[in-house]
Write a protein that binds this DNA or RNA. Structure first.
Lengths: 150, 150
DNA sequence: GCTTGCCCTAGAGTGATGTCTAGGGTTTAG
DNA sequence: CTAAACCCTAGACATCACTCTAGGGCAAGC
């Protein structure tokens, strides 16, 4: 049993264009063709495409994914190299996660300000501070309206 | 006290090019100019650039960040809108985090296979499965070497 | 045998986010 | 007063990852 590109598109959520693009980029050297030149995807192919998707979704570049796939196509001899690649990638993904978590905290801090009952007062105070700062350096007031009553 | 674009570049890690690009995109309407037309950044500006960076690093598009900054420049009247924007963004960031965590688990699963003492056996078995599958559908063997000894 | 709905390739186009270049002005130390 | 090290703009160029178009082939139902 094999799948057409349309079926694979529906199963994976990748557009037909994207699948062909990946093939052109050398990400799908394992996908065979039938007698009419149509791509014939097997279940094993789907599993590899799933792996490709994982790497892509965690920010790995297509060139790097191709390197990984090339190793896979060379068989068990390249297990060490694959391990090294995934370990390196794992580190960048973890760093990415930490960064996102940090930034999310800052966003939450902002949200807390906006959701507090004193939001208007806090924001007004910030704005006044900025205006004083600009004034002190003889720079124009960047805000639409001036709120300067100390 | 104000900062030059180079100082801000060093403080934020954003390149001078990027800072100017952001300005062109309307992200820095609050940055004033001195008598020579040079940008003069204040501490308040740095704080807003920090916020912009948080939003950017969590995947918010420049257009959307500009909308947020536009609200900020309109003063306390737009607090509700800012809150709504950050809440919506917060949801997408959380979804993003979940997706990354999922994908990382799959990568870890692969890593476990590669790091196991039976790695060669496991990988060889996978490869044999794929080859059987291709054979069963009269498709060519995608691997460099054939390992078909049942 | 003709229409419909697939499939193919090559290559052009798009959108987001920078990055750099050319050409020119400013500031400061010697 | 000049060299070095900044600053500016406009706009070209680059990169990545698609997305689409043109032109054409194949397969199944009426």
């Amino acid at each position: 049993m094999t799948y057409s590109i349309k079926e694979v598109s529906e199963k994976t959520g990748l557009s037909i264009y994207t699948l062909r693009f990946y093939d052109k980029q050398g990400l799908l050297p394992f996908v065979a063709r039938n007698s009419s030149g149509y791509r014939a995807f097997t279940d094993g192919d789907l599993s590899l495409i799933h792996t490709i998707n994982c790497l892509k979704n965690t920010g790995m570049k297509i060139k790097t994914i191709r390197q990984y796939i090339d190793y896979v196509m060379q068989g068990p001899a390249t297990i060490k190299q694959r391990e090294a690649m995934l370990l390196a990638h794992r580190k960048t993904v973890e760093a990415q996660q930490r960064k996102i978590a940090e930034n999310l905290q800052e966003i939450d801090y902002k949200l807390n300000v906006y959701q507090s009952p004193d939001a208007v007062a806090t924001v007004t105070k910030e704005q006044q501070f900025v205006q004083q700062e600009k004034l002190a350096n003889q720079l124009p007031n960047p805000y639409a309206q001036t709120i300067l009553s100390k």
